[in-house]
Computed example of a mutant assay.
Amino acid sequence: MLENEITVSANWVKSLVLFAEQAGCDRHRLLDSADLTLDVFNNLQRFTMDETVKLWGACIEETGDPCFGLHLGEKVRPATFHIVGYTLMNSANLSEAFDKLNQYQRLISDGGVFQRLPTSRGVWLVYHPRPGSIPFYYHQIDAVLAAVLSFSRWVTGEVLSPIDVSLAREKPACIDEYRRIFGVEPVFDAEFDGVLISHETLALPLLEADEELCEVHESHARKRLIELESDNGVKDKVVNLLRRYMSNQDAGRAFIANKLGLSEKSLQRKLAEEGATFQGLYNDLRQRLALDYVSDTAIPLAEVALMLGFSDSSAFYRAFKRWTGNTPGDYRGSTAE
């Protein structure tokens, strides 16, 4: 990932693909549409916003569902957002949960922010999308707002409906689905995207509210946010690019330097300043990925060799024996026991 590039959590992206699979889509076909390979998909921690939007487009086209985003948002649960979801669900009430969502939204995605606008009737939660070079699909906004409502219903145990729903998109043919999911008739062709939630609803206590547990989860969320915000060193960028292109046998020092807009000498110098070398990072990542892939019995060993950029299986076997003292087959057998 390049500095300041808009990215999305792998957990959210994988939830998107899983939902499309459950609707009958083929994972490999979806990934091909976004120029992603299965090994990259399985190992990236963050995806670029453009990659994410391409996946959205593939899912929308493959399912043929004009309300795909709406239906995805309807299925969201706190666990969908992992540490952020757990932090929110242990908050005292919905108002506090939405405050924490603003604080930790970036762990889910850099692709948008929420704004709270208080009124006499309630509080507008307005979503401001922040796309990359490819414009958002309206489905993405639908999913976010439907997810807010789905989350709220789940953590309060109440059948909640917003007072109003505002959508900047044009009125769709599947209007009945919007009425069903939101519980009200949205205003379309509006100036902004958001939901108006009553003050009474925001004050509702959450079923899993636990101050102590909330602090435990929030402490982890704060740490992850710090790590994400400091993930700007050249070393981190090199590792992220290597994860993405490990299966490419040409992904050496020159290839990575070019991706970063640096000369090889500049890359070497910057890595040395961070106490690292390109070859050291490459070898360490390759070995760690090898252990992960070999432990996964769903991946054929011949395919592991290709995923790691080896010219053939024998070269991979020799390297693995050097790293672990075992053949890949023996190692897989021992970890499966």
Rank of each mutant, 00 (worst) to 15 (best):
S91G: 09
A254Q: 13
I83S: 10
L38V: 04
L306Q: 11
S9D: 09
E74L: 13
G73T: 07
P300Y: 12
K14E: 15
G64A: 09
E274V: 00
K100V: 04
R153I: 06
D296Q: 07
A92Y: 14
L267W: 03
R243E: 08
N42D: 12
E264Q: 06
S120N: 10
V304N: 01
G132R: 03
L18R: 15
G194C: 04
L308Y: 01
V159E: 10
R322F: 10
S263G: 11
A58N: 05
S230E: 01
A10V: 01
L101E: 11
N43W: 10
R29F: 15
P118N: 14
L117W: 15
T277C: 03
V53Q: 12
V144A: 12
F19Y: 07
L242K: 04
R222A: 11
A251W: 05
V126L: 15
T87D: 13
T297S: 14
H139E: 02
V148F: 14
W154L: 12
I299P: 03
I163C: 09
Q249P: 07
S133C: 10
L271P: 00
K321L: 15
S33M: 12
A97V: 01
L291Y: 05
A302D: 14
A203P: 07
E212T: 13
D193M: 05
N43E: 15
P300G: 15
H128W: 11
L260R: 05
W323D: 03
I134G: 03
L101M: 12
L167Q: 07
G261Q: 08
E303H: 12
D284H: 15
R179P: 06
E229I: 01
G112N: 02
N232S: 07
A251D: 06
P118T: 08
T80C: 08
F320H: 01
A92L: 13
E191H: 11
F255H: 02
A79W: 08
A79G: 09
Y317W: 15
L202V: 01
A147Q: 04
T335G: 09
S9Y: 04
F41A: 06
V304S: 07
K235I: 00
V17I: 14
P162F: 09
S120E: 10
K237G: 00
F19I: 00
V195S: 09
N4A: 11
K223L: 11
K14V: 05
K75G: 12
V17Q: 05
E61F: 11
G57L: 09
T297M: 14
Q22G: 13
L36V: 12
S33E: 10
L16K: 00
R288D: 13
I6W: 06
L160N: 04
I83K: 08
L308V: 02
S166A: 14
V239I: 01
L44N: 11
P328K: 09
R77H: 10
G64H: 04
D176S: 15
A10D: 08
S161V: 07
N93L: 13
A221L: 04
C25T: 00
F47P: 08
N326V: 08
D193W: 05
A302Q: 15
